[in-house]
């Protein structure tokens, strides 16, 4: 029983992170049709923000507040300098954002030096959950992730900006016709996605090995989330995260992590073959 609960909670931790990282990708890849290979670096930058704040004596919570800001700043610059000039050239976007990704990784390495960076969680110790004992910080992580997701849902469904986004997604030309500045909306949405990914980086920092190259694993997995879940709905994002995160956590118990990754990749490919529009949007085709 406690084994089951622990696996479930582990899966939930991973799923939470994937949802946060995948959200930005669902916006850029899914809705704006921009393949941003530097998305993993938003996670890295968020994690480094926490490390940096802690290393100059700040608290974890201060660092966690800095993480989305760092992600947003990098995302905003990337959008202005590169992505908006390449909307009509998808392959060029891939190449340029990959270049940026390499530059950011190497820049971080040159600035902060080689080796993994230590980040301490705000709370050590475990919590007794009747059925099992579980690290307290992980529970906090899950809580913050869920609250963030809830916030995003409210933002998109209840605010004027959310309405703009939904309109632009539905029909770009029509949105321009009714006077929505689509470029600005894209830029804000992109920056927003980067901020959420930065937050995710800050959240995983105490659990992960903080390295300049850490982003690529999140990048690959988040893309799976978006591909498997389909684009255009929070439901798809959740479905994709549950699929990828759940499968990875379960497999991780049985076999080596990289074999688990390979199986998740294969499962994702097969899922896409069977439901080209994503798990969640399967009926609409």
């Amino acid at each position: 029983m406690d084994f089951l609960i622990t696996t479930l909670l582990n899966a939930l931790t991973l799923i939470s992170i994937l949802m946060l990282v995948g959200l930005g990708l669902a916006i850029s890849f899914g809705l704006m049709n921009v393949t941003n290979l530097a998305h993993g670096e938003f996670v890295t930058v968020g994690a480094f923000a926490v490390y940096f704040v802690q290393s100059i004596g700040g608290s974890f919570w201060l660092g966690l507040a800095a993480a989305p800001i760092a992600g947003a700043v990098v995302g905003c610059i990337l959008e202005f300098a590169i992505i908006r000039h390449l909307y009509s050239r998808p392959v060029s976007t891939v190449l340029a954002t990959w270049g940026v990704s390499l530059i950011l990784q190497q820049g971080l390495e040159l600035t902060f030096g080689l080796g993994a960076k230590p980040v301490t969680p705000p709370i050590e110790g475990t919590l007794d959950l009747v059925f099992t004992v579980y690290p307290a910080y992980r529970l906090i992580l899950i809580g913050i992730a869920m609250l963030t997701l809830l916030g995003v849902i409210l933002l998109i469904s209840r605010t004027p900006f959310g309405l703009d986004i939904r309109t632009v997604i539905q029909n770009r030309e029509m949105a321009e016709g009714v006077g929505i500045n689509t470029r600005r909306t894209y830029a804000i949405a992109f920056t927003f996605g980067a901020a959420i990914a930065g937050l995710a980086g800050g959240l995983v920092a105490p659990l992960a090995i903080v390295l300049p190259q850490m982003g690529v694993n999140y990048l690959a997995n988040a893309f799976f989330v978006v591909i498997v879940g389909g684009v255009g709905s929070i439901g798809g994002l959740v479905a994709g995260s549950v699929f990828v995160g759940g499968l990875t956590s379960i497999l991780n118990y049985q076999i080596s992590p990289s074999l688990a990754q390979a199986i998740v990749l294969l499962a994702a490919i097969v899922a896409v073959r069977l439901r080209p529009n994503g798990l969640f949007n399967g009926a609409s085709r």
């Binding site: 393949t35 998808p90 891939v94 690959a220 799976f224 591909i227 992590p257 990289s258 994702a268």
Partner: peptide, 29 residues
């Protein structure tokens, strides 16, 4: 799976990227 599943363009790029990552990991582990 990709070509007959209608996967082209960026989707193909991403899946092959993941394939590369996994191959390297497999070689290490």
């Amino acid at each position: 799976f990709l070509f007959f599943g209608g996967i082209r363009g960026s989707y193909f790029t991403i899946v092959t990227l993941a394939m590369g990552v996994i191959c390297q990991q497999a070689a290490v582990s």
